[in-house]
Simulated assay, not measured.
Amino acid sequence: SGCTSYKESQNLTHVSEFFLLGLSDDPEVQPLLLELFLSMYLVSVLGNLFIILAVISDSHLHTPMYFFLSNLSLVDIGYTSTTIPKMIVNIQTHSRVISYAGCLTQMSIFILFGCLDSLLLTVMAYDRFVAICHPLHYPVTMNPHLCGFLVLMSFLISILDSQLHNLLVLQLTCFKNVEISSFFCDPSQLLKLACSDTSINNLLIYFIGTIFGGIPLLGILYSYTQVISSILRVSSSSGKYKAFSTCSSHLSVVCLFYGTSFGVYFSSAVSHFPKKGVVASVVYAVVSPLMNPFIYSLRNRDIKSALWRLLNRIV
């Protein structure tokens, strides 16, 4: 594997590289993992790319909701591209090495896209809130300038989040080990390898995570409590169904993203088995972006028809 074992007592100051232990040490499992992750990556990228192309090519989808959806798909492509290609290359080359600078870069970009995903889901919830609770004001409120501003602000806040995580990791000057028990560089994993006391760093990471993850979630929950109460006030059952169907795909994506993200954070905090955390990481780093195009294309009639038109044009 090319990994070197280090004694707990040995402190490493000038670390130039880390070893990503990945999902399995078994050589027989490696080809299976390579095929599985390569196929998942290709499906994820192509699925999200088709959503973006469908939104761009269909004039019916030139609305705020689908503008945010195409941005979410773009972010999901970046999200999976941060970790999976490196993992595939490592399996293919039988190497698990990642440079110190490469590790920090991967961690920063991964957090950037993760935070951006969370904020875009919040913006989409706000869009649904305005559309259902204030339909008459919707065209004026959700104007192109506001939509662009919301996406730009989400991006800037995500950069701030990733750099705060970066600063916390840069404080670590020595490591007792260079073996990361995951397939990508995770800040919580790096803190576990530090030889100094990282209790304050851990506390700050969870605090930052709560701020940048918790506030958007509260925004989503508030938006949907208002949306559900508005839907329940609709007299006709067909009106209720139509209103709810515009939100169901977004709600499914929110549940998948936040459910897996919290699962990872709680499992890493509570569990003493690193492999459990790795499997949980796969779910939110790979499965969530992979499922988003399927959820939207299967549960959204407009996207489904736009995709058919796009495929017919290509074929």
Rank of each mutant, 00 (worst) to 15 (best):
H14F: 13
H14R: 11
H14M: 11
H14Y: 13
E17R: 14
F18E: 00
F18S: 00
F19W: 12
F19V: 03
F19E: 12
F19T: 08
L20H: 03
L20W: 03
L21Q: 14
G22Y: 00
L23D: 07
S24A: 08
S24L: 06
D25S: 15
D25V: 02
D26V: 12
D26R: 14
D26T: 09
E28K: 15
E28P: 01
V29P: 06
V29E: 15
Q30E: 03
Q30G: 01
Q30V: 06
P31F: 08
L32I: 15
L32W: 13
L32N: 14
L34D: 05
L36Y: 13
F37S: 05
L38A: 13
L38F: 14
S39Y: 14
M40S: 11
M40G: 11
L42W: 08
L42N: 08
V43Q: 04
V43K: 01
S44N: 12
G47I: 04
N48G: 05
N48A: 05
L49V: 07
L49Y: 13
L49D: 02
F50G: 01
I51D: 02
I52T: 02
I52Y: 05
A54C: 10
V55G: 05
I56S: 01
S57E: 07
S57K: 08
S59R: 09
S59D: 06
S59W: 01
H62I: 00
H62D: 01
M65Q: 10
Y66W: 11
Y66H: 13
F67K: 09
F67C: 13
F68I: 06
F68E: 01
L69Y: 06
S70I: 02
N71Q: 14
N71S: 14
N71T: 09
L72H: 09
L72N: 10
L74T: 15
V75W: 00
D76V: 07
I77P: 03
I77K: 02
G78R: 03
G78A: 12
G78L: 10
T80M: 11
T80A: 10
T83G: 11
I84N: 01
I84H: 02
P85L: 06
K86T: 13
M87P: 00
V89G: 00
N90M: 12
N90Y: 00
I91M: 12
I91S: 00
Q92D: 05
Q92C: 07
Q92E: 08
T93I: 03
H94Y: 14
H94V: 07
I98C: 02
I98D: 04
S99C: 04
S99A: 01
A101W: 09
G102S: 04
G102L: 03
C103S: 07
L104C: 12
L104M: 15
Q106F: 03
Q106Y: 04
M107S: 10
M107P: 02
M107D: 00
S108L: 08
I109C: 11
I109H: 09
F110S: 15
F110C: 11
F113W: 09
F113E: 04
G114T: 12
C115Q: 10
C115E: 11
L116A: 07
D117P: 00
S118A: 11
L119K: 01
L120P: 06
L120K: 03
L121M: 15
T122H: 01
V123F: 00
V123C: 04
M124V: 08
A125I: 04
A125K: 05
Y126G: 13
D127T: 10
D127R: 00
D127V: 04
F129V: 10
F129P: 04
V130Q: 08
V130I: 15
V130P: 07
